[in-house]
């Protein structure tokens, strides 16, 4: 397949799932004629009709609540939350119902719902449009939380997310929506697995979503200075791919976790604990975190100073190597 944008990778993935399974329905605000504010569902209502691509009333709790009912009726709802900061009205349904119904029903009931959330900053947006709230959901047992970082994964992971019987919170790095990449013919491993995107020997960079590109650039820059960085795209935040993480860190002995979310109680804290508990004797340095500060996401004129960038990643690499 030719090079396509990350956004269009999701579109083609959604289309493939909808063609394969008539039970797949899309729900969201402005996803019909408009094709969503990021145009990810563009053309789908025209091709699949208003019964399968539903412009919902403006109510996130309503969207998730009705998605639950549709799932109970045998449908596989794929829900679009317009922006990360607008998922909270639906939080109750996601954590109290979606995440728990399988266990409560002793497995008789499944919740094959996919909750798509464009997330993260870097697009100069106003408040509530740049958040990274993945840790809230990763903290909730019963939900899978995955993040794509490129067009290929976007295309395949959305299909895998729709196919699994678990509910999936599917994060899309909005500032990478327009990045182009090749989409291969087969997925790179099942849902739940991480992927080594660049092999290296000195330090492991662990990242997901928008920060994967930043880390790849950092690794490229470091390479020019004779440092070999390994870049692992986590792809799944819950469950975490322990084996892939530990395998890489045991090899390099050093780890830096990078994400946009605040480091305080972010994914980096969990990964750092995992590595420290399970690979302590392989470590040459403490696991370091590069991320947002413990403050509300700042106004856009300050976001460059809030968000990790190549320099901050390399700074952490230097500090790791200095041990």
């Amino acid at each position: 397949m030719a090079a396509t944008t990350l956004a269009k990778g999701i579109t083609s993935g959604l289309r493939a799932s909808m063609e394969k399974d008539p039970k797949v329905v899309l729900l969201g605000e402005d996803i019909g004629k408009l094709g969503g504010v990021f145009r990810v569902t563009e053309g789908l209502q025209k091709d699949f009709g208003e019964d399968r691509v539903i412009d919902t009333p403006l109510a996130e709790a309503g969207i998730l609540g009705t998605a639950i009912g549709m799932a109970l009726r045998g449908y596989r709802p794929v829900v679009e939350i317009q922006f990360d900061g607008f998922v909270y009205p639906a939080f109750d349904h996601i954590v109290s119902q979606v995440a728990k119904l399988r266990a409560r029903s002793l497995g008789y009931v499944t919740m094959p719902i996919v909750i798509r959330i464009p997330f993260g900053g870097g697009i100069g947006a106003v408040e509530h449009h740049s958040e990274s709230n993945e840790a809230y959901f990763a903290h909730t047992a019963g939900l899978r939380v995955v993040v794509c970082s490129n067009a290929h994964d976007a295309h395949w992971m959305i299909q895998q997310a729709i196919e699994t019987d678990d509910p999936v919170v599917f994060y899309e790095p909005k500032r990478r929506y327009w990045d182009k990449g090749e989409v291969g013919d087969v997925p790179d491993g099942p849902l739940g697995t991480a992927r080594v995107l660049r092999e290296g020997t000195d330090v492991t960079l662990l990242a997901y979503g928008p920060m994967v590109k930043t880390c790849l650039q950092a690794a490229q820059a470091a390479d020019e200075e004779g440092r070999s960085l390994e870049v692992v795209d986590l792809r799944s935040l819950s469950p975490l791919d322990d084996e892939a993480i530990l395998g890489s860190v045991e090899k390099t002995g050093r780890a830096v976790v990078v994400h946009e979310a605040s480091t305080f109680l972010g994914m980096g804290a969990e990964i750092s604990a995992l590595v420290t508990e399970r690979a302590f004797y392989h470590l040459e340095a403490p696991v370091l975190r590069v991320g947002g500060y413990n403050v509300p996401y700042p106004p856009s004129r300050l976001e460059e100073e809030f968000l990790p960038d190549l320099d901050r990643v390399l700074d952490a690499v230097d500090r790791s190597l200095a041990y």
Binding site: E29, D30, L34, D55, P57, L58
Partner: peptide, 11 residues
Amino acid sequence: WAISEPNEKQT
């Protein structure tokens, strides 16, 4: 209108 959704999508 609510972005692209006309009144009848809301009520």
